[in-house]
Design a protein around this nucleic acid. Structure first.
Length: 480
RNA sequence: GGCCCCGUGGUCAAGUGGUUAAGACAUCGCCCUUUCACGGCGGUAACAUGGGUUCGAAUCCCGUCGGGGUCACCA
Protein backbone atom coordinates (compact mmCIF):
# COMPACT_ATOMS: atom_id res chain seq x y z
CA UNK A 1 0.00 0.00 0.00
CA UNK A 2 1.17 3.48 -0.76
CA UNK A 3 1.68 5.99 2.03
CA UNK A 4 -1.45 6.15 4.09
CA UNK A 5 -2.73 9.65 4.58
CA UNK A 6 -6.19 10.23 5.93
CA UNK A 7 -8.01 13.27 7.11
CA UNK A 8 -10.72 14.36 9.46
CA UNK A 9 -12.49 17.37 8.01
CA UNK A 10 -15.18 18.78 10.26
CA UNK A 11 -17.07 21.89 9.40
CA UNK A 12 -16.99 24.17 12.42
CA UNK A 13 -20.71 24.66 12.73
CA UNK A 14 -21.38 22.89 16.00
CA UNK A 15 -19.75 20.80 18.66
CA UNK A 16 -18.09 17.44 18.30
CA UNK A 17 -20.89 14.90 18.50
CA UNK A 18 -20.27 11.23 18.94
CA UNK A 19 -20.78 10.47 15.26
CA UNK A 20 -18.09 12.94 14.28
CA UNK A 21 -15.90 11.68 17.07
CA UNK A 22 -16.18 8.15 15.77
CA UNK A 23 -15.34 9.23 12.24
CA UNK A 24 -12.28 10.99 13.60
CA UNK A 25 -11.45 7.94 15.67
CA UNK A 26 -11.69 5.50 12.77
CA UNK A 27 -9.46 7.74 10.68
CA UNK A 28 -7.03 7.92 13.55
CA UNK A 29 -7.03 4.17 14.17
CA UNK A 30 -6.54 3.53 10.48
CA UNK A 31 -3.65 6.00 10.27
CA UNK A 32 -1.94 4.63 13.36
CA UNK A 33 -2.46 1.04 12.29
CA UNK A 34 -0.85 1.72 8.94
CA UNK A 35 1.85 4.03 10.19
CA UNK A 36 0.23 6.77 8.22
CA UNK A 37 -0.67 10.36 8.86
CA UNK A 38 -3.85 11.97 10.03
CA UNK A 39 -4.47 15.45 8.72
CA UNK A 40 -6.93 17.76 10.36
CA UNK A 41 -8.67 19.99 7.90
CA UNK A 42 -11.30 22.57 8.64
CA UNK A 43 -14.03 22.71 6.05
CA UNK A 44 -15.10 26.25 6.73
CA UNK A 45 -16.27 27.39 3.33
CA UNK A 46 -19.69 28.13 4.73
CA UNK A 47 -19.01 31.64 5.94
CA UNK A 48 -22.46 32.01 7.42
CA UNK A 49 -22.34 29.14 9.83
CA UNK A 50 -18.69 28.59 10.64
CA UNK A 51 -17.53 29.88 13.98
CA UNK A 52 -14.31 30.01 15.92
CA UNK A 53 -16.02 28.78 19.06
CA UNK A 54 -17.17 25.69 17.29
CA UNK A 55 -13.69 25.06 15.96
CA UNK A 56 -12.27 25.36 19.42
CA UNK A 57 -14.87 22.98 20.82
CA UNK A 58 -14.06 20.38 18.20
CA UNK A 59 -10.31 20.67 18.71
CA UNK A 60 -10.73 20.47 22.47
CA UNK A 61 -12.96 17.45 22.12
CA UNK A 62 -10.45 15.61 19.96
CA UNK A 63 -7.58 16.40 22.28
CA UNK A 64 -9.53 15.35 25.31
CA UNK A 65 -10.33 12.04 23.68
CA UNK A 66 -6.66 11.58 22.91
CA UNK A 67 -7.05 11.75 19.15
CA UNK A 68 -4.02 13.59 17.86
CA UNK A 69 -3.18 14.61 14.33
CA UNK A 70 0.01 14.95 12.37
CA UNK A 71 -0.73 17.92 10.14
CA UNK A 72 -3.00 20.89 10.34
CA UNK A 73 -5.41 22.23 11.13
CA UNK A 74 -5.59 23.44 7.56
CA UNK A 75 -8.32 25.96 6.92
CA UNK A 76 -10.07 25.81 3.59
CA UNK A 77 -11.01 29.45 3.89
CA UNK A 78 -7.30 30.26 3.56
CA UNK A 79 -6.84 28.36 0.34
CA UNK A 80 -9.35 30.09 -1.85
CA UNK A 81 -6.94 30.91 -4.69
CA UNK A 82 -6.31 27.23 -5.08
CA UNK A 83 -9.92 26.35 -5.72
CA UNK A 84 -10.31 29.31 -8.04
CA UNK A 85 -7.29 28.23 -10.02
CA UNK A 86 -8.70 24.79 -10.64
CA UNK A 87 -12.17 26.11 -11.37
CA UNK A 88 -10.77 28.52 -13.95
CA UNK A 89 -8.87 25.69 -15.49
CA UNK A 90 -12.00 23.59 -15.82
CA UNK A 91 -13.85 26.48 -17.44
CA UNK A 92 -10.96 27.05 -19.81
CA UNK A 93 -11.06 23.42 -20.82
CA UNK A 94 -14.79 23.60 -21.36
CA UNK A 95 -15.49 21.12 -18.56
CA UNK A 96 -17.27 23.69 -16.47
CA UNK A 97 -19.15 26.86 -17.24
CA UNK A 98 -20.46 30.09 -15.82
CA UNK A 99 -24.08 30.18 -14.87
CA UNK A 100 -25.84 33.48 -14.40
CA UNK A 101 -29.16 32.18 -13.21
CA UNK A 102 -30.36 33.83 -10.03
CA UNK A 103 -31.69 32.00 -7.01
CA UNK A 104 -35.18 33.14 -7.90
CA UNK A 105 -34.90 31.72 -11.39
CA UNK A 106 -33.66 28.45 -10.00
CA UNK A 107 -36.51 28.27 -7.53
CA UNK A 108 -38.97 28.68 -10.38
CA UNK A 109 -37.24 25.98 -12.41
CA UNK A 110 -37.37 23.64 -9.47
CA UNK A 111 -41.00 24.15 -8.68
CA UNK A 112 -41.96 23.79 -12.34
CA UNK A 113 -40.03 20.56 -12.58
CA UNK A 114 -41.84 19.25 -9.54
CA UNK A 115 -45.19 20.21 -10.98
CA UNK A 116 -44.65 17.82 -13.86
CA UNK A 117 -43.33 15.23 -11.47
CA UNK A 118 -39.70 15.50 -12.43
CA UNK A 119 -36.76 15.67 -10.08
CA UNK A 120 -35.79 19.27 -9.29
CA UNK A 121 -32.64 19.43 -11.32
CA UNK A 122 -30.89 22.33 -12.95
CA UNK A 123 -31.95 22.49 -16.58
CA UNK A 124 -28.59 23.41 -18.03
CA UNK A 125 -29.84 26.78 -19.21
CA UNK A 126 -26.41 28.44 -19.20
CA UNK A 127 -24.51 25.40 -20.33
CA UNK A 128 -24.20 26.55 -23.91
CA UNK A 129 -23.88 30.27 -23.55
CA UNK A 130 -21.65 31.71 -26.24
CA UNK A 131 -18.39 33.35 -25.19
CA UNK A 132 -19.84 36.69 -26.24
CA UNK A 133 -22.86 36.28 -24.05
CA UNK A 134 -20.69 35.28 -21.13
CA UNK A 135 -18.48 38.29 -21.64
CA UNK A 136 -21.48 40.56 -21.92
CA UNK A 137 -23.04 39.33 -18.68
CA UNK A 138 -19.78 39.61 -16.82
CA UNK A 139 -19.27 43.14 -18.09
CA UNK A 140 -22.76 43.96 -16.90
CA UNK A 141 -21.60 42.90 -13.48
CA UNK A 142 -23.93 39.95 -13.27
CA UNK A 143 -23.21 37.51 -10.50
CA UNK A 144 -22.35 34.01 -11.57
CA UNK A 145 -21.53 30.57 -10.27
CA UNK A 146 -19.42 27.89 -11.89
CA UNK A 147 -21.09 24.60 -12.74
CA UNK A 148 -19.53 21.33 -13.74
CA UNK A 149 -20.59 19.81 -17.05
CA UNK A 150 -21.86 16.45 -15.93
CA UNK A 151 -22.07 13.73 -18.57
CA UNK A 152 -25.70 12.92 -19.34
CA UNK A 153 -25.05 9.24 -19.83
CA UNK A 154 -23.08 6.48 -18.29
CA UNK A 155 -22.57 5.37 -14.73
CA UNK A 156 -20.27 6.45 -12.00
CA UNK A 157 -19.20 3.77 -9.62
CA UNK A 158 -17.86 4.24 -6.15
CA UNK A 159 -15.51 1.54 -4.94
CA UNK A 160 -16.16 1.50 -1.25
CA UNK A 161 -14.03 -0.58 1.09
CA UNK A 162 -16.88 -1.13 3.48
CA UNK A 163 -19.79 -1.41 1.06
CA UNK A 164 -18.32 -2.72 -2.14
CA UNK A 165 -19.14 -1.13 -5.48
CA UNK A 166 -22.00 1.33 -5.51
CA UNK A 167 -23.31 2.46 -8.90
CA UNK A 168 -24.97 5.71 -9.77
CA UNK A 169 -26.57 6.74 -13.02
CA UNK A 170 -25.09 9.99 -14.27
CA UNK A 171 -28.52 11.00 -15.48
CA UNK A 172 -29.54 11.47 -11.85
CA UNK A 173 -27.11 14.34 -11.47
CA UNK A 174 -27.45 17.84 -12.79
CA UNK A 175 -24.69 20.31 -13.55
CA UNK A 176 -23.96 21.08 -9.95
CA UNK A 177 -22.23 24.15 -8.65
CA UNK A 178 -18.55 24.00 -7.85
CA UNK A 179 -17.94 27.70 -7.19
CA UNK A 180 -20.47 29.87 -5.45
CA UNK A 181 -21.16 33.46 -6.49
CA UNK A 182 -19.17 34.73 -3.52
CA UNK A 183 -16.14 33.00 -5.00
CA UNK A 184 -16.16 30.28 -2.38
CA UNK A 185 -15.90 26.69 -3.54
CA UNK A 186 -18.71 24.33 -2.70
CA UNK A 187 -18.07 21.44 -0.38
CA UNK A 188 -17.73 18.83 -3.09
CA UNK A 189 -15.27 20.87 -5.07
CA UNK A 190 -13.08 22.04 -2.22
CA UNK A 191 -13.00 18.55 -0.81
CA UNK A 192 -11.70 17.05 -4.03
CA UNK A 193 -9.07 19.72 -4.54
CA UNK A 194 -7.82 19.44 -0.99
CA UNK A 195 -7.89 15.68 -0.80
CA UNK A 196 -5.82 15.66 -3.96
CA UNK A 197 -3.44 18.41 -2.91
CA UNK A 198 -2.96 16.82 0.49
CA UNK A 199 -2.33 13.45 -1.12
CA UNK A 200 -5.07 11.79 0.87
CA UNK A 201 -4.96 8.06 0.22
CA UNK A 202 -8.17 6.97 1.97
CA UNK A 203 -11.27 8.97 2.55
CA UNK A 204 -13.03 7.64 5.61
CA UNK A 205 -16.19 9.54 6.38
CA UNK A 206 -19.80 9.18 7.37
CA UNK A 207 -22.35 7.45 5.23
CA UNK A 208 -24.23 10.68 4.68
CA UNK A 209 -21.51 11.46 2.15
CA UNK A 210 -22.01 8.37 0.08
CA UNK A 211 -24.40 10.10 -2.29
CA UNK A 212 -21.93 12.93 -2.68
CA UNK A 213 -19.14 10.67 -3.67
CA UNK A 214 -20.13 10.11 -7.32
CA UNK A 215 -20.21 13.86 -7.77
CA UNK A 216 -16.76 14.10 -6.33
CA UNK A 217 -15.60 11.32 -8.60
CA UNK A 218 -16.94 13.29 -11.55
CA UNK A 219 -14.78 16.18 -10.39
CA UNK A 220 -11.74 13.93 -10.01
CA UNK A 221 -12.29 12.78 -13.56
CA UNK A 222 -12.78 16.26 -14.98
CA UNK A 223 -9.59 17.36 -13.29
CA UNK A 224 -7.71 14.24 -14.29
CA UNK A 225 -6.80 13.47 -10.68
CA UNK A 226 -6.10 10.01 -9.42
CA UNK A 227 -8.87 8.88 -7.10
CA UNK A 228 -8.33 7.88 -3.46
CA UNK A 229 -9.92 4.90 -1.76
CA UNK A 230 -13.28 5.45 -0.15
CA UNK A 231 -14.81 4.02 2.98
CA UNK A 232 -18.19 5.17 4.20
CA UNK A 233 -18.85 4.40 7.81
CA UNK A 234 -22.46 3.97 8.83
CA UNK A 235 -24.05 6.63 10.91
CA UNK A 236 -24.73 6.71 14.60
CA UNK A 237 -28.41 7.21 15.24
CA UNK A 238 -30.30 8.47 18.24
CA UNK A 239 -32.30 5.94 20.30
CA UNK A 240 -35.41 6.74 18.23
CA UNK A 241 -33.53 5.86 15.04
CA UNK A 242 -33.44 9.42 13.84
CA UNK A 243 -30.42 11.54 13.13
CA UNK A 244 -28.56 12.73 16.17
CA UNK A 245 -29.52 16.20 17.31
CA UNK A 246 -29.63 18.35 20.39
CA UNK A 247 -33.06 17.17 21.39
CA UNK A 248 -31.64 13.72 22.09
CA UNK A 249 -29.90 14.82 25.23
CA UNK A 250 -26.28 13.87 25.55
CA UNK A 251 -24.84 13.60 22.06
CA UNK A 252 -21.73 15.73 22.18
CA UNK A 253 -18.41 14.67 23.54
CA UNK A 254 -18.38 17.76 25.73
CA UNK A 255 -21.70 16.77 27.26
CA UNK A 256 -20.47 13.31 28.16
CA UNK A 257 -17.41 14.87 29.66
CA UNK A 258 -19.56 17.12 31.84
CA UNK A 259 -21.61 14.12 32.90
CA UNK A 260 -18.47 12.47 34.24
CA UNK A 261 -17.46 10.02 31.58
CA UNK A 262 -13.81 9.17 31.04
CA UNK A 263 -12.28 9.66 27.58
CA UNK A 264 -10.95 6.10 27.53
CA UNK A 265 -14.44 4.73 28.10
CA UNK A 266 -15.93 6.88 25.37
CA UNK A 267 -13.23 5.86 22.93
CA UNK A 268 -13.73 2.21 23.79
CA UNK A 269 -17.46 2.53 23.42
CA UNK A 270 -17.59 4.38 20.12
CA UNK A 271 -15.00 2.03 18.68
CA UNK A 272 -17.39 -0.75 19.55
CA UNK A 273 -20.11 0.94 17.55
CA UNK A 274 -19.14 -0.68 14.30
CA UNK A 275 -16.03 -2.60 15.11
CA UNK A 276 -14.94 -5.46 17.36
CA UNK A 277 -11.50 -6.99 17.83
CA UNK A 278 -11.00 -10.47 16.47
CA UNK A 279 -11.31 -12.15 19.87
CA UNK A 280 -14.65 -10.45 20.50
CA UNK A 281 -13.46 -8.92 23.77
CA UNK A 282 -15.34 -5.69 24.23
CA UNK A 283 -13.13 -3.99 26.76
CA UNK A 284 -9.85 -3.08 25.14
CA UNK A 285 -7.10 -0.52 25.02
CA UNK A 286 -6.45 1.77 22.08
CA UNK A 287 -3.13 -0.03 21.62
CA UNK A 288 -5.06 -3.13 20.84
CA UNK A 289 -7.53 -1.49 18.49
CA UNK A 290 -4.67 0.23 16.67
CA UNK A 291 -2.96 -3.09 16.27
CA UNK A 292 -6.04 -4.80 14.90
CA UNK A 293 -8.04 -2.11 13.17
CA UNK A 294 -8.96 -2.71 9.55
CA UNK A 295 -11.72 -1.12 7.53
CA UNK A 296 -13.07 -4.34 6.11
CA UNK A 297 -14.13 -5.34 9.59
CA UNK A 298 -16.20 -2.21 10.04
CA UNK A 299 -19.93 -2.88 10.24
CA UNK A 300 -22.32 -1.66 7.57
CA UNK A 301 -25.31 -1.20 9.83
CA UNK A 302 -26.13 2.08 11.38
CA UNK A 303 -25.77 1.92 15.15
CA UNK A 304 -27.97 3.32 17.82
CA UNK A 305 -25.92 4.39 20.75
CA UNK A 306 -26.81 3.06 24.13
CA UNK A 307 -25.85 5.15 27.10
CA UNK A 308 -26.33 2.21 29.42
CA UNK A 309 -23.52 0.28 27.86
CA UNK A 310 -21.30 3.33 27.80
CA UNK A 311 -22.03 3.78 31.48
CA UNK A 312 -21.18 0.18 32.22
CA UNK A 313 -17.88 0.58 30.39
CA UNK A 314 -17.20 3.80 32.22
CA UNK A 315 -17.64 1.95 35.49
CA UNK A 316 -15.04 -0.56 34.41
CA UNK A 317 -12.59 2.19 33.60
CA UNK A 318 -13.30 3.94 36.87
CA UNK A 319 -12.46 0.80 38.79
CA UNK A 320 -9.27 0.32 36.80
CA UNK A 321 -8.09 3.89 36.75
CA UNK A 322 -4.97 5.03 38.48
CA UNK A 323 -6.24 6.38 41.80
CA UNK A 324 -4.43 9.69 41.58
CA UNK A 325 -5.65 10.37 38.09
CA UNK A 326 -9.15 9.45 39.13
CA UNK A 327 -8.99 11.69 42.17
CA UNK A 328 -7.87 14.60 40.02
CA UNK A 329 -10.79 13.99 37.69
CA UNK A 330 -13.27 13.84 40.56
CA UNK A 331 -12.16 17.03 42.29
CA UNK A 332 -13.73 19.44 39.77
CA UNK A 333 -17.03 17.65 40.25
CA UNK A 334 -16.76 17.98 44.03
CA UNK A 335 -16.08 21.67 43.64
CA UNK A 336 -18.91 22.28 41.23
CA UNK A 337 -21.29 20.46 43.54
CA UNK A 338 -20.19 22.72 46.36
CA UNK A 339 -18.86 19.87 48.49
CA UNK A 340 -15.33 21.20 48.75
CA UNK A 341 -13.57 24.47 48.10
CA UNK A 342 -10.11 25.19 46.79
CA UNK A 343 -8.30 24.39 50.05
CA UNK A 344 -9.15 20.73 50.05
CA UNK A 345 -7.15 17.93 51.64
CA UNK A 346 -6.02 15.90 48.64
CA UNK A 347 -5.00 12.79 50.53
CA UNK A 348 -8.25 12.62 52.40
CA UNK A 349 -10.21 12.97 49.18
CA UNK A 350 -8.15 10.30 47.53
CA UNK A 351 -8.95 7.88 50.32
CA UNK A 352 -12.64 8.51 49.96
CA UNK A 353 -12.52 8.19 46.18
CA UNK A 354 -10.76 4.92 46.66
CA UNK A 355 -13.48 3.75 49.04
CA UNK A 356 -16.47 4.71 46.92
CA UNK A 357 -15.35 4.23 43.34
CA UNK A 358 -16.03 0.52 43.29
CA UNK A 359 -19.74 1.07 43.14
CA UNK A 360 -20.07 4.17 41.00
CA UNK A 361 -20.09 4.50 37.25
CA UNK A 362 -19.41 8.14 36.53
CA UNK A 363 -17.26 10.85 38.06
CA UNK A 364 -20.37 12.75 38.92
CA UNK A 365 -21.78 9.75 40.77
CA UNK A 366 -18.53 9.40 42.67
CA UNK A 367 -18.79 12.98 43.79
CA UNK A 368 -22.40 12.45 44.88
CA UNK A 369 -21.43 9.32 46.74
CA UNK A 370 -18.87 11.34 48.69
CA UNK A 371 -21.20 14.01 49.93
CA UNK A 372 -21.65 12.83 53.52
CA UNK A 373 -17.94 13.02 54.16
CA UNK A 374 -18.11 16.76 53.72
CA UNK A 375 -21.62 17.58 54.83
CA UNK A 376 -22.89 16.84 58.36
CA UNK A 377 -26.40 17.98 57.77
CA UNK A 378 -27.89 15.26 55.62
CA UNK A 379 -31.29 13.63 55.76
CA UNK A 380 -31.86 9.94 56.34
CA UNK A 381 -32.99 7.69 53.55
CA UNK A 382 -36.72 7.25 53.96
CA UNK A 383 -36.92 3.53 53.38
CA UNK A 384 -33.93 3.09 55.64
CA UNK A 385 -35.67 4.93 58.43
CA UNK A 386 -38.69 2.66 58.16
CA UNK A 387 -36.61 -0.45 58.02
CA UNK A 388 -33.96 0.28 60.64
CA UNK A 389 -34.76 3.32 62.76
CA UNK A 390 -38.35 2.44 63.51
CA UNK A 391 -37.38 -0.95 64.78
CA UNK A 392 -37.83 -1.56 68.51
CA UNK A 393 -34.76 -1.01 70.56
CA UNK A 394 -32.47 0.44 67.91
CA UNK A 395 -31.84 3.52 70.01
CA UNK A 396 -30.57 1.33 72.83
CA UNK A 397 -28.31 -0.59 70.54
CA UNK A 398 -26.93 2.65 69.15
CA UNK A 399 -26.38 4.00 72.67
CA UNK A 400 -24.34 0.95 73.45
CA UNK A 401 -22.46 1.48 70.22
CA UNK A 402 -21.59 5.04 71.15
CA UNK A 403 -20.33 3.97 74.57
CA UNK A 404 -18.25 1.26 72.99
CA UNK A 405 -16.77 3.47 70.32
CA UNK A 406 -15.87 6.13 72.84
CA UNK A 407 -13.49 3.68 74.46
CA UNK A 408 -11.58 2.99 71.26
CA UNK A 409 -8.30 4.87 71.22
CA UNK A 410 -6.89 3.68 67.97
CA UNK A 411 -9.90 4.50 65.84
CA UNK A 412 -9.25 2.48 62.76
CA UNK A 413 -11.03 -0.06 60.60
CA UNK A 414 -9.82 -3.12 62.45
CA UNK A 415 -10.30 -1.86 66.00
CA UNK A 416 -13.76 -0.50 65.39
CA UNK A 417 -14.85 -3.68 63.70
CA UNK A 418 -13.49 -5.71 66.61
CA UNK A 419 -15.43 -3.79 69.22
CA UNK A 420 -18.56 -3.92 67.08
CA UNK A 421 -18.27 -7.68 66.76
CA UNK A 422 -17.80 -7.99 70.51
CA UNK A 423 -20.80 -5.81 71.13
CA UNK A 424 -22.95 -7.94 68.86
CA UNK A 425 -21.97 -10.98 70.82
CA UNK A 426 -22.54 -9.36 74.18
CA UNK A 427 -25.97 -8.03 73.19
CA UNK A 428 -26.78 -11.28 71.49
CA UNK A 429 -28.10 -9.59 68.37
CA UNK A 430 -27.61 -10.11 64.65
CA UNK A 431 -24.88 -8.13 63.03
CA UNK A 432 -27.37 -6.41 60.77
CA UNK A 433 -29.19 -5.03 63.80
CA UNK A 434 -26.18 -2.93 64.56
CA UNK A 435 -24.56 -2.43 61.18
CA UNK A 436 -27.56 -1.13 59.28
CA UNK A 437 -28.65 1.51 61.75
CA UNK A 438 -25.09 2.64 62.19
CA UNK A 439 -24.64 3.06 58.46
CA UNK A 440 -27.82 5.04 58.19
CA UNK A 441 -26.84 7.18 61.17
CA UNK A 442 -23.43 8.13 59.89
CA UNK A 443 -24.11 8.41 56.17
CA UNK A 444 -27.85 8.85 55.81
CA UNK A 445 -27.77 6.00 53.33
CA UNK A 446 -28.47 2.31 53.22
CA UNK A 447 -25.65 1.55 50.86
CA UNK A 448 -22.04 2.50 50.37
CA UNK A 449 -18.55 1.30 51.21
CA UNK A 450 -17.89 -1.17 53.98
CA UNK A 451 -19.19 0.20 57.25
CA UNK A 452 -15.80 0.32 58.95
CA UNK A 453 -14.22 2.00 55.97
CA UNK A 454 -16.71 4.79 56.45
CA UNK A 455 -16.14 4.89 60.19
CA UNK A 456 -12.40 5.13 59.83
CA UNK A 457 -12.65 7.78 57.15
CA UNK A 458 -15.07 9.83 59.21
CA UNK A 459 -13.04 9.57 62.38
CA UNK A 460 -14.04 9.14 65.97
CA UNK A 461 -15.56 12.51 66.65
CA UNK A 462 -17.85 12.67 63.63
CA UNK A 463 -18.87 9.07 63.90
CA UNK A 464 -19.97 9.41 67.49
CA UNK A 465 -21.63 12.75 66.97
CA UNK A 466 -23.63 11.43 64.08
CA UNK A 467 -24.79 8.38 65.96
CA UNK A 468 -25.85 10.53 68.88
CA UNK A 469 -27.72 12.77 66.53
CA UNK A 470 -29.46 9.78 65.03
CA UNK A 471 -30.48 8.55 68.47
CA UNK A 472 -32.20 11.86 69.12
CA UNK A 473 -33.87 11.63 65.76
CA UNK A 474 -35.11 8.14 66.49
CA UNK A 475 -36.48 9.22 69.85
CA UNK A 476 -38.31 12.08 68.21
CA UNK A 477 -40.02 9.91 65.61
CA UNK A 478 -40.99 7.34 68.20
CA UNK A 479 -42.66 9.90 70.41
CA UNK A 480 -45.06 10.77 67.65
C1' G B 1 -41.08 11.34 -4.88
C1' G B 2 -36.09 9.82 -7.69
C1' C B 3 -31.43 7.74 -6.45
C1' C B 4 -28.37 5.27 -2.72
C1' C B 5 -27.29 2.53 1.87
C1' C B 6 -28.94 -0.75 5.69
C1' G B 7 -32.22 -4.81 7.92
C1' U B 8 -29.61 -11.24 13.39
C1' G B 9 -32.97 -10.53 20.62
C1' G B 10 -34.76 -3.89 23.59
C1' U B 11 -29.31 -2.13 22.10
C1' C B 12 -24.30 -3.28 20.09
C1' A B 13 -22.66 -7.48 17.56
C1' A B 14 -20.24 -12.71 15.88
C1' G B 15 -21.65 -15.34 11.68
C1' U B 16 -19.28 -15.40 4.42
C1' G B 17 -24.27 -22.48 2.17
C1' G B 18 -24.59 -27.51 6.78
C1' U B 19 -23.83 -24.07 14.19
C1' U B 20 -28.10 -26.67 19.72
C1' A B 21 -27.62 -19.00 15.75
C1' A B 22 -21.75 -16.81 19.81
C1' G B 23 -20.68 -12.84 23.13
C1' A B 24 -21.56 -7.97 25.58
C1' C B 25 -25.07 -4.22 27.64
C1' A B 26 -29.95 -4.06 29.50
C1' U B 27 -33.63 -7.19 31.96
C1' C B 28 -35.20 -11.35 35.40
C1' G B 29 -33.78 -15.14 39.14
C1' C B 30 -30.09 -17.38 42.34
C1' C B 31 -25.22 -17.24 44.91
C1' C B 32 -21.45 -14.20 47.44
C1' U B 33 -22.04 -10.24 51.27
C1' U B 34 -23.00 -5.93 57.29
C1' U B 35 -25.52 -2.61 52.77
C1' C B 36 -24.83 -1.19 47.82
C1' A B 37 -21.76 -2.38 44.04
C1' C B 38 -18.20 -5.84 41.97
C1' G B 39 -17.92 -10.91 40.85
C1' G B 40 -20.05 -15.90 39.81
C1' C B 41 -24.11 -19.04 37.97
C1' G B 42 -28.64 -19.45 35.31
C1' G B 43 -33.18 -17.63 32.58
C1' U B 44 -36.21 -14.64 28.98
C1' A B 45 -35.22 -12.88 24.15
C1' A B 46 -33.32 -12.53 17.31
C1' C B 47 -32.10 -14.12 11.51
C1' A B 48 -38.24 -8.03 8.78
C1' U B 49 -41.35 -10.55 5.05
C1' G B 50 -42.79 -13.38 0.52
C1' G B 51 -40.87 -15.94 -3.43
C1' G B 52 -36.90 -18.43 -5.76
C1' U B 53 -31.67 -21.13 -6.34
C1' U B 54 -29.89 -25.54 -3.64
C1' C B 55 -29.92 -32.07 -0.99
C1' G B 56 -29.44 -27.93 2.46
C1' A B 57 -30.04 -20.83 3.31
C1' A B 58 -29.27 -15.87 8.58
C1' U B 59 -25.67 -16.51 4.64
C1' C B 60 -26.83 -16.30 -2.85
C1' C B 61 -30.92 -13.85 -6.30
C1' C B 62 -35.65 -11.08 -6.89
C1' G B 63 -39.97 -8.58 -4.98
C1' U B 64 -42.31 -6.33 -0.71
C1' C B 65 -42.07 -3.90 3.85
C1' G B 66 -39.34 -1.06 7.40
C1' G B 67 -35.39 2.39 8.86
C1' G B 68 -31.72 5.84 7.30
C1' G B 69 -29.14 9.04 3.86
C1' U B 70 -29.16 12.30 -0.27
C1' C B 71 -31.20 15.28 -4.07
C1' A B 72 -28.98 23.44 -1.64
C1' C B 73 -24.86 29.18 -4.16
C1' C B 74 -24.85 23.54 3.89
C1' A B 75 -20.97 20.58 4.86
Amino acid sequence: MKDVRVRFAPSPTGNLHIGGARTALFNWLFARHNNGKLILRVDDTDLERSTGDSMKAILDGLKWLGIDWDEGPVYQSKRLELYKKYADELVRQGKAYYCFCTKEELDIMRSEAQKVGKPPMYTGKCRNLSPDEVKKYIDEGKKYVVRLKVPKEGKTVVHDIIRGDVEFDNSTFDDFIIMKSDNMPTYNFATVIDDYEMKISHIIRGEEHLSNTPKQILIYEALGFEKPEFAHVSMILAPDRSKLSKRHGATSVQKFRDLGYLPEAIINYITLLGWVPSDGEEVFTTEKSIREFTLDRVSKNPAIYDTKKLTWLNGIYIRDYNIDRLTKEVIPFLISKGLISDDYDYNYIRKIVSAVREREKTLSEIADAMSYYFVDDFSYDEKGVKKYFEKDGVENILREAVETLKKVDDFNLIETENVYRDLIERLNIKSGDLFHPTRLAISGRTFGPGLFDIIELLGKEKTIKRIEKAIKYIESIKQR
